[in-house]
């Protein structure tokens, strides 16, 4: 039915596509492995548990305790502020927004996500730190980082909700559920894995930022205070950026340790999201083994 040359072409094409896919995978995995090897290799020989409990400073550079707490506080703040606004925006775009207005909002969101982080940081500095007189502070950092990641969360939420089968909505409407009941009982549950994934990616992006935080959070060797304004906050990427070039003994290793800690926190966030997704998929349409 098929000529030999036709069959040979199909086999070659099949092999070529496999090779291309494998090459793409290597292109992703290799830099990650190199990155992990590089920073862990530098940090591990000098690892000391006291780094986690000691404040930065001193002749040997000190530890990273205040910076770890600062990073966690900033990340938690972004999760709350950007999470609420981003998920709310995604809900509005997918469920409530008229089509014309939706196009304008989506375009605005895409433009916002394309603005370089350093530009947002500079804007945050001139407006919040200087003009509003907030000073370097947690508040300024949260506002700028949230503005930066809200488009990611909104887009992930919108896409996740739009992927929920229409059948769920019809079933809810057929039972006489209100729009909110339909959303809560029939739409948000199956959309949760997509929303959580978007939120975690956004938090990982926020956690890894340096430039906007230098402009807004400032720098500090102390633990964050309860003040939202006029109180600088230390963060891990500051140590990664600053300590690497310090002439002090052990500074470069401290920088590598801060980088490892950032990787560990991102990994923990990913594991947390996997757990949430696993729980929310218990009754998923794609999980026919769910239940007991």
């Amino acid at each position: 039915m098929f000529s030999k040359s036709h069959l040979l072409r199909r086999k070659i094409l099949d092999k070529a596509m496999w090779a291309l896919a494998t090459f793409s995978l290597v292109c992703i995995v290799a830099p990650l492995a190199w990155l992990v090897w590089g920073v862990v290799g530098r940090a591990l020989p000098h690892w000391n548990w006291s780094l986690l409990t000691t404040k930065p400073g001193g002749a040997n550079g000190g530890g990273l305790s205040t910076l770890i707490v600062g990073t966690l506080v900033i990340t938690a703040g972004v999760a709350v502020v950007a999470g609420i606004i981003g998920i709310g925006s995604g809900l509005y775009l997918s469920e409530l927004c008229p089509e014309g207005k939706g196009k304008i909002l989506r375009t605005a969101s895409e433009v916002l996500s394309g603005v370089p982080a350093i530009v947002l940081g500079f804007l945050g500095y001139t407006v919040l730190v200087v003009e509003f007189k907030w000073g370097f502070s947690l508040g300024a950092a949260l506002v700028v980082l949230s503005i930066m990641v809200v488009p990611y969360i909104a887009k992930a939420t919108e896409v996740a909700i739009l992927q929920v089968p229409t059948a769920f909505r019809e079933a809810a409407e057929g039972l006489g559920m209100t729009r909110w009941q339909t959303l809560r009982r029939a739409v948000l549950k199956p959309a949760a894995p997509g929303i959580v994934t978007g939120l975690i990616i956004a938090l990982a992006i926020a956690m890894g930022e340096t430039a906007p935080l230098l402009y807004t959070a400032g720098a500090s060797n102390n633990f964050p205070t309860s003040h939202i304004t006029h109180s600088p906050v230390g963060f891990l990427t500051y140590a990664v950026w600053t300590d690497y070039n310090q002439p002090l003994a052990g500074s470069a290793e401290l920088s590598a340790t801060a980088a490892v800690l950032l990787l560990v926190i991102v990994l923990m966030l990913i594991l947390l999201s996997r757990l949430v997704i696993r729980v929310s998929k218990k009754y998923s349409i794609n999980n026919s083994h769910g239940g007991r």
Binding site: P165, A167, F168, E170, A171, A172, E173, G174, L175, G176, M177, T178, R185, A186, K189, P190, Y283, S284, I285, G291
Partner: peptide, 22 residues
């Protein structure tokens, strides 16, 4: 109120569409 109406006039669809819950 269409929501109350749909409680009195129920509907079942072509494909089974249980919710993703127990």
């Amino acid at each position: 109120d269409p929501l109350v109406l749909r409680r009195n006039v129920g509907m079942v669809f072509q494909r089974p569409n249980p919710f993703p819950m127990s």
